[in-house]
Structure formats: structure tokens, C-alpha cells
Amino acid sequence: MKKKKESCDTFMYEYEVDSRSPLMHLFWCDPIAKKNFMQFGDIVSFDTTYSTNRYSMIFAPFTGRDNHGRAFVKCMGLSPKLIITDQDLGMKVVVENVLVDTRHRWCMWHIMAKVAEKVPKSLLGNSVFKKDLNSCVWSELIEPTEFEDKWNTVMETYELEDADWFVSMFESREFWVPAYFRDFPNSSLIKTTSVSESQNRFFKRYTQSRANLVMFLMNFNNAVDAQRNKSAKLDYMDANTTAKMRTEWSVEKHASTIFTDYAFKEIQEQILEAYNHCSLISISNESSPEHYKDRSCMLPRLSCIEEQKLIPENLIGGRWLKSPLVKAVHAVQFEDVATHGYVDDKKKAQAILLGEMLELYQAVSVNIDQMHELTSIVREAR
């Protein structure tokens, strides 16, 4: 750590030892992690349940999602806008006292995973109950009062009004139900499957259960390198491939030039749905004036999408933009690249080839023998 600091001033680390000198705590953060936090640190997940080393020391990463929807790792002292943890009451006190400007929310994945343990056996295989509870809890489109009405209806219907766990979860609803976070930008991020759980599974691919500290740090660096290589590959693919359009609307073309492929595919589905609705209305208008008249109330909402040439600036935000645009939004230095242009077959082939090479590198980078073998193969091919 000291040598890293000497060669890179923006690298930081701190550690503590007890009275007999054994290491108690170690905290570190590199420059790339700081940039990640600057761009995507509005929502982070913090989990302290991952422990795989011979000293039984807990590894507790701060984890977020990048503009490709993938988890990234960072450890730093800056305050996020929102932090997600499990239901540990100690964490609740710490967040309130230390991260005073940060909103705290509990991980929905952890909470909902406990439902099967808390309901009577008669409800375990009841798909209707599961559907009713999920539609009540997971929706970010309903207001808090509507959630409370739906929750009470579910509790009464399935006779859970006096179940202690459900009572306590309702009392703590403002810490985990999306309806109470509707005012928070990108709130959809915080109701997905646990970011920390996903990240823990990822680290297990690179770590050994009885590793010492040096081995763990080497494995950690390999894991982070693999993530960053994957992100670099996705950035390259975004910059050098052209998405296939599914409508004739200019707004779809504009979306493809500014959003990452991950985000664009989600947006494209919504545009296609609106496009198909407009087509149906047009057919109805030609064949049945009365039917058209009955549905004319839909036209303003749909026609505004059709007439819209560009995505309105107030709907773009910064998280889901292509990486150069995200960096520009957050004032991070970057090289200018075109956000839209024709890509010929040769460029597409180049992008695919580079992507395959990056994946190969990522696959063998944790094993020196495999790296030597791949190097020999590449030299022979060249």
C-alpha cells in the first residue's frame, strides 16, 4: 500500500492495529474507484457479510452500478446520496450519525427473501398471495397512501394482520418500500436484486476461503481488473456499433446515440410499445371513425412521442449515457468521440474481435500458466 501511494498520490489507504500490533482494519481506494464514485456514487450498497480469509476479517465493499447496469467496486470516504444496507440496527445508527446527508434504505432483496420463512405453510405455494404481495410492495408507481391501503388489504385477505414480522415490516416501511423513495432519482436501481449479493458471488470466483491478506489483495485486484476490462469492452462496443432501429421515429435514433446499449434496449421497448399503439390507432381511424373517436384521448400522449425528434434534456440525466457523455456531465476529463455515425462492416468486425480478445484476457488473467499459454497462441497466430 505504501509503495502504491508513493507512485500514485491519489491512491489512499488507512489501517489500524491493536496494542499487540496485529492488524485490525484496512481501508483503501484507488483513483479509478474515485472516478467511479464521482459518476455513479449517488446510490451505493454496503454489506459486511462477506468473509473469506484465514483471519476471519470481514470484507466490506461499497458497491454501485455503472452506466451499463453492472456492479463496480469502490472504497472511499465520500458521502453518497443514498446508501443501501441490510436491517442491521447498528448500521442504522452509524448512517444517521456519520452520513448525515445520506438517505438510508434497507435492501428489499434481503427482506423479501425472508417472506417464505415468515408465512404459514398454507401460503408457501400460493402464487396468488405472492402476486398480490409483490404488486403491493415492489411498485414504485404508487403513492405511499395507496401502498398502505394495498398492504392492509393483503394482510386482511391472508389473515396476516397479527403476524409479528409483517407488523414490524409495515412499521419500518419508510426504510424499504419503493413508494417512499419516489422522489429519489433512479429509484428503480434500489429495488433490483441485491447489488451486494451479486457482487459477493462475483468475488467468490476469484478468492480462496483460507487466503492470507497478500493473496486476498492480489485476488481482489484481479477481480477489479476483470470488471474494468469488461466495462472497457462495453464502452468500446457502445462507441463502435450501431443499434438496429425498430421504428421510423427520430427519437429512437437519438436515444441510440446517447444511451448505453443496456439502457437503450430498455428505452427502445417503451418506444416500440408507443409506436405500435399509434399504428393501431391509425388503422382504427381509417376503418372505424366511431372507434377512433372513443380512443382519441390517447392521441396527445402518443403523438407527442412521434413528433419528438430528440429526447428532452430533463429526461436524459447522467447515469445511463454513453461513458464519454457521462464523464462530460460530471466534468471528468475524456477524449472526444462521436456519439453518432455510420459504422461499416469492417468496424463492426474490429469491435467484435477486440471484445473477444478482452474476454479471453479476462478469463485467463487469474492464472499465470494460462496467460503464458494464451500469449504463445497469440504469437503463433500473428
Results as ranks from 00 to 15, higher is better:
H340P: 00
F170T: 04
F72T: 03
N126C: 09
H104W: 04
M12V: 12
Q308A: 13
A226D: 06
E143Q: 14
T260V: 03
I142M: 06
M12C: 10
L141V: 05
N36H: 07
K74G: 14
K347W: 12
M76N: 15
A243T: 13
V167I: 10
E14S: 14
P289D: 03
R301K: 15
V378W: 02
V214E: 07
G69W: 04
V378N: 02
G69A: 05
E380N: 14
F170S: 08
S56Y: 11
V329H: 15
V195W: 11
K92T: 11
N240S: 00
D164T: 13
V326C: 05
A331W: 08
V119I: 11
S21G: 09
V167W: 03
K265E: 13
L141G: 12
C297L: 10
S256G: 11
F37G: 01
C29Q: 05
S288D: 13
C75R: 09
R228E: 13
G69K: 10
T52P: 05
K130I: 06
T241W: 04
A71M: 13
F216P: 06
K309L: 07
F166C: 04
S194F: 01
R20W: 00
H254S: 07
A223F: 02
I281S: 05
G41Q: 03
S250K: 15
D149I: 11
E161S: 11
S296K: 14
F72N: 04
L360Q: 06
E269V: 10
W138V: 02
A351Y: 00
M38R: 15
I283Y: 07
G317H: 02
